[in-house]
Design a protein around this nucleic acid. Structure first.
Length: 997
RNA sequence: GCCCAGAUGGCGGAAUUGGUAGACGCGCCAGACUCAAAAUCUGGUAUUCGCAAGGAUGUGCAGGUUCGAUUCCUGUUCUGGGCACCA
């Protein structure tokens, strides 16, 4: 300290003063608008995108910036490589938490969201990101959601033309209906039947041009609704009667509401949907042309869940009803002779019709049980539940009577909501049959052992009528052909994916630009957009499960001259705004169109998209769909939004615990009992806690003894129960050692009088890796770290933690190492005492080798997103140059450019110290020259039977024979051979040598 | 339950295509500088046997393929993410 005290003016140069440096350059870059990017450039373009955040009230913790830092590094790297880089940021600002906050505190979500955003922005700025903030988007701003609504109208006014395999405007479908009816364009939902006006008409799904002309407007609109890409239908929601509102899945825990613990049941409500199922095939095909991880593609593929099979109609025989059909979907029509029972979803409409009188009560009870259960629970439960309807289906081939059961494991939304159960070939069916004592038919002979089902396709069928003796694989096609011939079944491709629910009974989202009149949905004129989200007095639910907007009578039913009818009072879900935001960044201020075609043609696809896997099947599928629709309708020129996706891992928290004693006090003298309140809380160090649980009696006694000593005599102390484990703020724990002074101040002095029983004079905390969250006191705020170590250190440390795609626990301890590295780098330029070190001397071969090796390594690592190893390569380079005492500008200057994407501030500062004009952000990336890296020999590992025993330096151009001679002459090898001849000698050039004995 | 991923020293991790397991950093130990501390620097540090030379073991667990496996295959355990209204 004293040393630099005298030369305070030189301080900034003499030592690494990251605070001044970072502030200086952040201001300079801001003043020069250095991150502003133009849509007009001769350079090649590169688009780097982060998944934009939901601005939560909790602010950023160290987990959030991980992906942002990675993308920032890559954006800066591409800039150095000569690209025009688009790297924007914004906010996904609609969402449930802000609304919940409004309900609880009466603060408008726009206000709390704006506050949160301001806080986020401050935090982000400190880390030194190169975002072009002039392109910021906010999904809750009217100038943004105007276009979300506009795209919604495009979806509403379009249908998917299956013959051209693309979205087209619905007017063209009306033309088709007028010319040829819907014979070539069947209604996507095969369950839908056209409503008929008179009783003598049979419900139908096909109509001709004259039918179409004769339909009334309501029928026409109902039919068109069945084709629209955004359509209205009915769907089940989590309904909580006590709260009078619909709950999100994560607000429901074990069938009751998270807040208040009220019962939650399924209820059908009118909902908007996106017909994403029409895009299932293209979403699947598109995966082959984009650079996502195999795991991500697999997840999306499984989610889409394309399967090939058949729909089969079974006649139902029951006492109560006449001829009913049970339509099942199966991927294994070859097993039709092995069907021992049917299972239909508890929501299935046939239940009412086919349930026999004696089963009515049981079925009713079962259905009400299922209503209280979520889809997740229904599939996750290991317990087998079900109920017999009393009805039987008839096997069309052998007339066998098949009992029809109801069970929660069959979901109404998938296939036809009914399955044919083949217990010898399906594990779940097998368990169900065993549980309910349903006899099992074996159709696969020895392949079925009676102990478990066998889902093979390689068995020869037995007990299978006309399919006997046929390989199952081949029987699938034969069975379908037969079903089609008999007119009781057809080949069918099915998708597990369902249409996406697109409405919420909530306030804080985009209003739908829809007016309802006489049960028909009319779109607002595009000129009327944006439809502004109105102010409300209270944020609670509207009547009948509607959203808060339904409470606004004036808004919901605008006066007649303006509109007849009532507004849609649902709002759009969180993913509406995020489904197209990557396009808005390209042209963020355009008030004529969502994004000018010139801008989207210039920027095209996002070249690199970084975000978490938690969005694997939600956002990433929806935004792919929206992009395809916009492409089909000619609004943009590409149909996949993201060329490459990198998934960042989660940073977990490392929680710390303290152990509070749970004690009883007994008074040996006549003291008043209420004095107990004045006893301090006692905390025992981890060692004692572990001992307590290992029933170490001496420790237990020791603890009580220590407590007695501290509270004085006259009071007996005993255990009231086991010590209690409490989360403690990780920020007041150094490694595992609790900072006792800080702890006493923590939580407004709640533990000010705490007493501690220490081990070796320290209080050691327990620990566990958990999700990072405020309630666990394990969040670490990036701001604190930036203040202590600087943004450059923080950025590099986040990367140094491990591969960006991997989840890992946060540990602040290691940040010192990265900080030391930057200080060591600084000392290649300046010495505290001697001042300037760098020179213009010519570099020697050893120094050039270090440089060019490092260029190669960092470039390769950055290209493959291996940022952790790139940081370590920087460290190695600085270590080696320090060892070489290399202070040469020629070397250091290039090293700074390599470092720029990772630690831009220090790089810029030293770049200018070296006398460079202009910003290092636009320097030319150095090129690694192979001539400095050429080696003539290698130190080979010599293994015997694969186990390395020694090393030997051999020329790189040595032949097999030369190597063998050298090996056999080697003392170590001779010793291990014990005079015997080796079986062979494996020599892999530039790798290793293995002697096989 | 279903789908996906992961598991390597005391800790985070490295080993890019099957070829020297543990780079780099933290922590720890020892030493230098210092009245002392911090900072900085130097050396050591997977486990185990051995004074040493040297040997054995070792990448969640159990097998397999291979001259050779952290890497490929089969099974299994545990942890994390997702499962359609959190974003």
């Amino acid at each position: 300290m004293q040393k630099v005290g005298y030369i305070i003016a030189h301080k900034i140069i003499m030592e690494y003063n990251f605070r001044e440096i970072e502030q200086k350059w952040q201001e300079d870059w801001k003043r020069k608008e250095i991150y502003k990017v133009s849509n007009d450039s001769t350079k090649p373009k590169y688009y780097v995108l982060d998944m934009f955040p939901y601005p939560s009230g909790a602010g950023l913790h160290v987990g959030h910036p991980l992906g942002y830092i990675a993308s920032d590094i890559f954006a800066r790297y591409k800039r150095l490589k000569g690209f025009n880089v688009l790297h924007p940021m914004g906010y996904d600002a609609f969402g449930l938490p802000a609304e919940q906050y409004a309900i609880e505190h009466g603060i408008h979500p726009a206000v709390s969201t704006a506050n949160n955003i301001e806080n986020f922005r401050k935090q982000l700025d400190k880390i030194g990101f190169c975002y072009d903030w002039s392109r910021e988007v906010n999904t809750s701003h009217a100038d943004y959601y105007k276009w979300t609504q506009w795209i919604f109208l495009k979806l509403f006014k379009s249908y998917y033309n299956r013959s051209t395999q693309k979205a087209e405007i619905i007017d063209s479908l009306i033309d088709i209906f007028e010319k040829e009816g819907n014979i070539n364009h069947p209604i996507p939902n095969s369950q839908f039947q056209i409503p008929v006006s008179t009783n003598d008409q049979q419900p139908t799904t096909i109509f001709n041009p004259s039918d179409w002309k004769n339909f009334d407007e309501k029928t026409k609109q109902a039919i068109l609704m069945e084709y629209r890409l955004a359509y209205c239908g009915y769907g089940e929601v989590n309904w909580c009667e006590a709260l009078g509102t619909v709950l999100a899945n994560d607000e429901v825990i074990n069938g009751v509401s998270e807040r208040g613990g009220h019962p939650v049941v399924k209820k059908k409500l009118r909902q908007w949907y996106l017909r994403i199922t029409e895009y299932a095939n293209r979403l699947l095909d598109g995966l082959e042309r984009i650079d996502f991880s195999e795991a991500m593609k697999e997840m999306q593929t499984n989610w889409i869940g394309k399967s090939y099979g058949a729909e089969i109609d079974f006649k139902v025989k029951s006492q109560e009803s006449g001829a009913e059909n049970l339509k099942v979907y199966t991927t294994r029509p070859d097993t039709i002779f092995g069907v021992d029972f049917m299972v239909i979803a508890p929501e299935h409409e046939l239940i009412e019709k086919i349930t026999t009188a004696e089963q009515k009560q049981a079925v009713g009870e079962y259905i009400s049980y299922v209503k209280s259960r979520s889809d997740r629970e229904r599939q996750a439960e290991k317990k087998i539940t079900g109920c017999f309807t009393g009805a039987y289906a008839i096997n069309p081939f052998d007339g066998k009577h098949i009992p029809i059961w109801i069970s929660e494991y069959v979901l109404a939304g998938y296939g036809t909501g009914a399955i044919m159960a083949v217990p010898c070939g399906d594990e779940r069916d097998f368990k169900f049959a065993k549980h309910f004592n349903i006899p099992i038919t074996n159709i696969i002979g020895a392949h079925y052992n009676g102990e478990e089902a066998n889902a093979t396709k390689d068995a020869i069928l037995e007990n299978s009528g006309f399919l006997n003796g046929i390989l199952m694989r081949d029987a699938i096609g034969i069975a379908i052909a037969k079903l089609e011939e008999m007119g009781i079944g057809k080949r069918k491709v099915n998708y597990k994916m369902r249409d996406a629910a697109f409405s919420r009974q909530r306030y804080w989202g985009e209003p739908f630009p829809i007016i309802w009149k006489d049960g028909i949905a009319y779109p607002l004129d595009e000129k009327e957009l944006p439809l502004i989200l109105p102010e409300v007095d209270k944020y609670g639910p509207g009547p009948d499960g509607e959203g808060p907007l339904a409470n606004l009578k004036d808004w919901a039913s605008p006066p007649a001259p303006l509109h007849e009818g009532v507004r849609e009072t649902n709002t759009m879900p969180g993913y509406a705004g995020s489904s197209w935001y990557f396009l808005r960044y390209m042209d963020p201020h355009n008030d004529q169109i969502f994004c000018d075609r010139k801008a989207s043609d210039y920027w095209g696809q996002v070249d690199l998209y970084i975000g978490g896997t938690e969005h694997a099947v939600g956002h990433l599928l929806y935004s792919r769909m929206w992009t395809k629709v916009l492409f089909d309708l000619g609004h943009i020129g590409h149909e996949e939004p993201y060329k490459k996706l990198v998934n960042q891992g989660m940073i977990q928290g490392s929680s710390r615990f303290v152990y509070r004693l749970n004690l009883n006090y007994e008074y040996t003298s006549a003291q008043k009992i209420n004095e107990t309140k004045s006893f301090p809380q006692f905390f025992i160090s981890k060692h004692f806690y572990d001992d307590y649980f290992n029933n170490n009696h001496e420790t237990s006694k020791y603890i009580l003894n220590e407590v007695s000593k501290k509270i004085g005599g006259g009071i007996g102390v005993s255990y009231n129960g086991a010590p209690i484990l409490l989360h403690v703020d990780v920020n007041i724990v150094d490694g595992f050692e609790l900072n006792i002074e800080e702890f006493k101040k923590w939580r407004i002095g709640e533990y000010a009088n705490a007493e501690f029983i220490l081990e070796d004079g320290k209080y050691i905390c327990g620990s566990e890796v958990e999700k990072m969250s405020k309630s666990k006191f394990n969040t670490v705020n990036p701001d604190d770290l930036v203040v202590r170590y600087g943004a450059d250190t923080f950025r590099m440390y986040e990367m140094f933690l491990g591969p960006v795609e991997q989840s890992k626990p946060w540990d602040t301890k290691g940040i010192e190492g990265v900080h030391r590295f930057l200080k060591k780098l600084w000392r290649l330029f300046y010495d505290e005492m001697k001042g300037k070190l760098w020179t213009d001397e010519k570099a020697n071969d050893a120094e050039l080798k270090v440089l060019h090796k490092t260029i190669k390594k960092i470039e390769e690592d950055t290209e493959r997103f291996s940022f952790n190893t790139a940081v370590s390569a920087c460290m190695i380079a600085v270590n080696e140059l320090s060892d070489l005492k290399c202070y040469k500008k020629e070397i250091l200057e290039k090293l700074l450019i390599l470092l720029t994407p990772y630690a831009p501030h220090i790089a810029e500062e030293l770049w200018h110290q070296l006398g460079n004009e202009g910003s290092i952000l636009d320097a030319a990336y150095p090129i690694s020259e192979g001539k400095y890296l050429i080696e003539s020999s290698k130190n080979y590992p010599i293994a015997l039977n694969g186990k390395t025993k020694t090393e030997l330096t051999i020329s790189l151009d040595a032949t097999q024979q030369q190597v063998e001679e050298m090996i056999l002459a080697n003392e170590t090898v001779k010793k291990w051979l014990e005079g015997k001849q080796p079986k062979k000698i494996i020599y892999v050039k530039n790798k290793m040598i293995n002697v096989v004995m």
